[in-house]
Structures are given as structure tokens and as C-alpha cells.
Design a binder for these strands. Sequence first.
DNA 1: AAGGCGTCCAACCGCTTCTAA
DNA 2: TTTAGAAGCGGTTGGACGCCT
Length: 229
Amino acid sequence: MRCRPTEKPLMKQKKGLWSPDEDQKLRDYVMNYGYSCWSAVPVNAGLQRNGKSCRLRWINYLRPGLKKGAFSMQEEETILTLHGLLGNKWSLISQHLPGRTDNEIKNHWHSYLKKRAPKTEKLEEQTKPECKNSNSGNTESSITRNSSFDSSDCARNNKPPKILFADWLTLEEFHAHENLVSKDGISNGPNYQDAPVNGLLSNEGSTDSSETVMRDLKESFTLHGRTIA
DNA sequence: AAGGCGTCCAACCGCTTCTAA
DNA sequence: TTTAGAAGCGGTTGGACGCCT
């Protein structure tokens, strides 16, 4: 969804940590009017921030239903399993951990879980299929994007079937969320960050065990004509 | 007590994708 | 078909904090 161009903010945009006052302004605005157009949010809410910053603050901190506190063993197990399957697809991983944000999961991975999974990483390196990117002198990408199921090197060149979030839903489920409309008539669209999702992702209130996650993923891929080896 | 160092996390940056005009 | 602008995503950075010497 694309929103109409809005007036450019006249004030200089602020950076850095958010104040409680800014949080309150953003929360009030989003609760009342929704966020069909993030670039308009700071202007209308009277914030000296850019839309991107507001979106991030809302998703990572202000959004209702966010879990605070330490990750449970089960959550960590899920992250490890999914990371092994999907690589650094933090937004996909976060969809299996209700109340956790991609940023939070990413941080937790770099802080704790990465150290716990060195064997997995090494195994991935060894078993990585021969698809070395001939045209890339870009060592950065091959170092930082070292997952087995990733959009990196090989995947980019061979153009595998793209898997969008909508692919994980049935058509009915997708359209059900597409019809989500705020009380002011502003359509929020299929906002997967907030929408309680049925079916595959219906894990509200319960974290997937790694086995369940594996099974779900395999079933989902099979359903869409793809398989996980 | 104070300075150095490491860790964690919030937020920014830059790139890609999507879509309306 | 092209283009511009917005959203989304993942990598990176910087500051706050705690621990150690």
C-alpha cells in the first residue's frame, strides 16, 4: 500500500533514544488513527522523527502484545532450529515467536545463541552447495550471509522461488487480514506484524517446539510445491 | 575509587522490494 | 514500461551498564 505524499516536516528531525513523551505521542496517534502511512505519522502526531523511526519504535517497543524479559529455553530452541533452516531471516523467525520482534531475536542471536551454535555453523560451511558467486568480489556478503537457506550468493543468482509471507497463509486467511480496517476506516492491510494469524502461524500464547516448527515448515513448503531436504 | 573492557540493546543506515502514478 | 516514493528487512553502530583489576 502506498500513501499519498504528505507535507515535508519543517522541523529538524530528531535522532537517538526516544523520550517517554515521544512514546506517548506515537502510541496515542497509532491507537487512534492507525498507521496506514508511516511517513504521515510523525507529521500528524507532532513528532520530530521520520516515519521509518516511528515504525521501528512502534514495532519493537510500543506495539501491544510484546513480550518483555528473557527468552525461554523453548524460544531459544525455536530460534536455533529456525535459524538452521532459514538463516538470518529474522522477520520470518519472529513470526514463530509471538510477542518477540525481529530486532530482539537478532540481538539475542548475536549475544547468546551464536555462541551456542558454532557446530551448526561449521556444518553449514562444509555442506554449503557449490554455488560460489563467480562475479562477486564482495567478501562481505559471503561472510555475513553464511546461511544454508538464504538469499545470498547462490540464491540470488539462481533466482529461487520467492517465498513471501502471504505464501504461508491460505488465501482465505490472507484475505481475512487484508480486510482488517481500523475504526476510523483506515485500512491497515495485511499487517503481519500485528495480525493474529491462524493456521500455520497460530501460535498466539504458545511457542512452537522445534519439532512442531520443523513439521510446519516442511508441510508448508510441500503445500506450495517446494520441499525442504 | 576509577579506569578499562566487554556485553547488551535500541536505533540508525543502506539496500531491496513493492506499487501507484 | 518506467519511475518515484514508501515499506520492509538485515547489518551495523553507539551508548549505557556491569564486571574486573
